[in-house]
Design a protein around this nucleic acid. Sequence first.
DNA 1: TAGATTGTTAATCGATTAACAATC
DNA 2: TAGATTGTTAATCGATTAACAATC
Lengths: 212, 212
Amino acid sequence: MNRIPLPSLRRLPRYLNVLENLQRQGRTTVSATDVADELDLKPIQIRKDMAFTGIVGKPKVGYDINELIDAIRTFIGWHDVTPCVLVGSGSLGTALLGYEGFAKRNLKIVAAFDIDSERYGRIIYGTPVFSMDKLAEVIERDNISMAIITVPTHAAQDVTNSLIAVGIAGIWNFSPTEIQVPPHVVVKRENLSEGLAVLFVKMRERQFRSPD
Amino acid sequence: MNRIPLPSLRRLPRYLNVLENLQRQGRTTVSATDVADELDLKPIQIRKDMAFTGIVGKPKVGYDINELIDAIRTFIGWHDVTPCVLVGSGSLGTALLGYEGFAKRNLKIVAAFDIDSERYGRIIYGTPVFSMDKLAEVIERDNISMAIITVPTHAAQDVTNSLIAVGIAGIWNFSPTEIQVPPHVVVKRENLSEGLAVLFVKMRERQFRSPD
DNA sequence: TAGATTGTTAATCGATTAACAATC
DNA sequence: TAGATTGTTAATCGATTAACAATC
């Protein structure tokens, strides 16, 4: 199977949400049309996307809902617990520490870090906050390969460098800065202003065009 | 000029960040190559994207940096102040109320709302929190057309319905739920699990492939 | 059995990249 | 002036959609 297209990959978690809702309602099978209706997409797109997870459906019946959920979770890597650290325990960092959705996806923030002595030593939503000089120790101890960055712009590159120095392989970057990393490190940007721009322009376009 | 492609639109705020940095350093002109190097993109893509904002550059010289910043900000709609409301003053809502980046883009959260009587009546980072039954009053008073939703999953659709009832045109949805809206309302989802899925799969792919 | 739904192969659509003439 | 950079037109690439045979 080929590498999954990025747009398809982004849709998988949405499918998962829909499927989990249906599962909770007691459904045992689901067709591409069922999912498509829920998300305003076309059934053919759902079938194509699902195929990347390796799931095989049954003509006339659809997909076994448990199998399908399992296939998506396995494909994304949400079946095993992934430990990670969070750097920057400000308001956004705190919000992420308290975000219940991560547990459902088996993401476990084992430790947070901050330079501010007012902040380290505390426990936020069950996660201990350490001073920055404990970073290497904790990451090595728990064999962590992923980090979340929620520090202010001016600190982002320094924090990134520290993380790279201790061997982090993936960074989820919530700071509104383009961090520079070597080619073997994966970065996912999460830049609020991108979403805001999309919303603004879509709203303007909606004003002047017929809604399709 | 045609409608801007979504990927191009998402890149504009990234260009803006780079340009503002260069402007702060005293630069007066910038070439597509300069921006491309900063973001690991190709110059031709930057030129194509910039053209959508209506900016015209000078061969050999590049773009006037002030003009270019202005063109992007005007195109997105970040030149005028946009007032909005935020519904759900939990940890994520609080983080957004404290996010300094919005001021730079002229987004002004004029009021927050919550059903919890422990929360309304307070002021968070300068923004007053009201009870939900004040929603219509505030939105009409300040002529608000945009809302941010940061409520838990189970409340998202109810809140959406209330917002639509009072005439909201655009919703920035941070709750991990697919909300249903009539066709004239624009929604921008901001679903953390999509980003997480992308990061996970990219990290796995990086392990098994040569880094290009 | 008949028809609904899958998965595959082909066609279309849209975004990115390349080529190059125009020009400050 | 010469060469670096723009903007346009064409080519390529990749994702979405359509068509349809296979089948539970």
